[in-house]
Amino acid sequence: MSNRTLPRLLQTPAVILLLIWMLVPLSMTLYFSFIRYVLNNLRRPEWTTPSIENWRGFGNYNFVLNNQDFWLAVQNSLLIVCSILFLTVILGVLIAVLINKAFPGRSLVRVLLISPFFVMPAVNAVLWINMILDPVLGLQGLAVGGINAVIADLQNAPIIGPFFSLWPALEPISFRATQTSAYAVIIMVTWQWTPFAVLIFMTSLQSEDQQQKEAAILDGASAWSQFRFLTLPHLGRPIAIVVMIQAIFHLSLYAEIEIVSRGNGNKNLPYLIGEFANNNIGAASATGIFAVILANIVAIFLLRMIGKTLME
């Protein structure tokens, strides 16, 4: 045995474990996606056990592609992911630039800011949808009720009353409805992931070229053009990484969707897969393969970027 064989063997447990973890379930998904496989079917009991004889070819893929729920779920997944990306990047850059320079209590503000990121997703969703966004009993409902009460009081006031009587009473928004529950998810995930973006952008801002910046100030460059021509280009790469990592995480959002929108039409891909998996395993598997393809489109770019810095 050469001097280096044993050390190299030490990586095999990790590699084998991950290989099994990746290959076994995924190849089963691939297999199930090509056969007829349902959990309950009284008329065709032979479909309830997975077997190569129930081969369906691309039938499940066809079924999924012609299913309206699938397209709604894709649309909804993309709406949620893109909105979150847009909001977290904009807010992240602004906040990172804001707290990049020293000010009293900076480290405490950092601690306050990063906290949401460590809240478990289930608590995040329960907290927002109930205690904060509930249209009657949550903070939103209470706030809207309070404002309406103030307006009502003002309407009865002498002289200025008629002016306020033109104001309509505010209506609280119900975030559990089909049309609005996606917004609730966007709000809560943005709250949770903006700190992540801030943290990464701040790390990157710390390596910004200060001499270049000083030269720009001496040349009389305005704060805006310093930001536009120095800071923003410097942040290009971290922004790309934040976008890709978040895209991968948010394409598989589950707990938030499950908690906010159980029982209404607001589904994303993982949620739809869970629904199919209650009975139609073939369709669930085909949808799963589509989800893998969607995630891989992002992952390829991300891996290429990581690969470039890997061995530096």
Binding site: L26, T29, S252, G274, I281, V298, L310
Partner: peptide, 24 residues
């Protein structure tokens, strides 16, 4: 390097895709 990249790529598979096989 390739092994490391491959390891990271397993992290990027959506969990939901293998929901039923895992349950099964």
């Amino acid at each position: 390097k390739d092994i490391l990249m491959w390891m990271l790529s397993t992290k990027m598979l959506p969990a939901a895709a293998v929901l039923y096989p895992m349950t099964f």
